[in-house]
Amino acid sequence: MDFTVFRPYVNYATRYAFSKGQENCNRHGYSSAIYLISEGKGVLHTCGRTYETGQGSLLYIPAGQPHDWIADSQDPMVHICCYFDWVYRDRHANFSSPSHICYDADLLLCNQLDIAFPYPIPEHLKVEKLHIWIDHFEKFYVENNFVNERTYMSNIRTQSHFLQFIDFFLSFVLKDDHVPDPRIYKLLRQLDQDLLHGKLLPLETYYRELRISRGYFFELFKHATGLPPIQYINQFRINRAKDDLRNSTISVTEIAEKHRFSSVHYFSKLFRQLTGKSPREFRDEVHM
């Protein structure tokens, strides 16, 4: 799975209050949808499953999945909701608005559907601290209109807030084996900054700050990056060295010193191990 294609983009986000007993039936969204019940009660039917929803219910419906809403006859629900694509789609040519609903399965344009997220997301969960979720949503409320010159700048801010929400949402709904301990990301940001500024500290300094053991640190690190810490650091430095080999004329010895390798011999040996080429061979190839 190429995760670089996943760039979540919100098309429409709003607050919607149902009337008593109101039904929204036979809906097929071209976008994926997240619903948060902020008030009241109702029922969701989807693919033969029924969910009784109330305040704090969080529901996820993938694109194209049929679903029906029925509001309670006495205490109708209020939706805080968003319709978004995991991969941005331009639907100008097919629809008058970016988040379009189809009410007849026979008319559904399958080539316009958002793609499925690669990990399973539960359809129905209950959230605590409802006000935090509502605060997230309210920051990216957006009308169901295509972006134009007038709305371009505000849309940048909207998408920025939406990405923060998606990070918050996925951290909540995905299982631990898909989402590493969030503490490791803070550590990685610091590690990357220290590498960029040539101020790398001993590894124990980083995991002691998190108050975790060396073994757990190595486990978290590899889960988050796919590499043990030393390999990650070496790969980081080699990638920076590649940039210099491509885009500068400074010598291999200067590059080794610049990126804090203990010697040009060690730099060349490690470079060959990771790339299959010597630094000079790499530079000659990219300049051919």
Rank of each mutant, 00 (worst) to 15 (best):
T4P: 00
V5F: 05
V10Q: 06
Y12V: 00
Y16W: 12
Y16D: 00
G21R: 04
N24Q: 12
H28F: 14
S31Y: 05
I37M: 05
E39M: 03
G40H: 00
G42F: 06
H45A: 03
H45N: 11
C47N: 14
G48M: 04
T50Y: 04
T53D: 01
T53E: 09
G56N: 10
L58C: 03
L59H: 05
L59G: 00
I61M: 15
I61F: 13
I61Y: 09
A63C: 03
A63N: 08
Q65Y: 04
P66M: 06
S73D: 15
D75L: 07
H79E: 11
I80L: 09
C82P: 08
Y83Q: 06
F84C: 02
V87D: 08
Y88V: 08
H92P: 03
N94H: 13
F95K: 02
S99G: 10
C102G: 08
I121W: 08
P122K: 07
H124Y: 14
H124G: 02
L125R: 13
L125D: 10
E128Q: 13
W133V: 01
D135G: 11
H136Y: 14
E138C: 10
E138A: 04
K139Y: 08
F140I: 07
N145M: 11
N145W: 06
N148Y: 04
R150V: 14
T151H: 04
I156T: 06
H161F: 15
L163Q: 14
S171P: 00
F172D: 01
K175H: 14
V179S: 12
D181H: 10
D181C: 11
P182I: 03
Y185A: 11
L191D: 00
H197Q: 10
K199L: 08
L200V: 09
Y207H: 07
G215F: 06
G215M: 07
L220V: 08
G226P: 12
P229C: 01
P229I: 01
Y232G: 05
N239C: 09
A241Q: 04
R246I: 15
S248T: 15
I250Q: 14
I255A: 02
K258W: 00
F271W: 07
S278H: 09
F282G: 00
H287E: 02
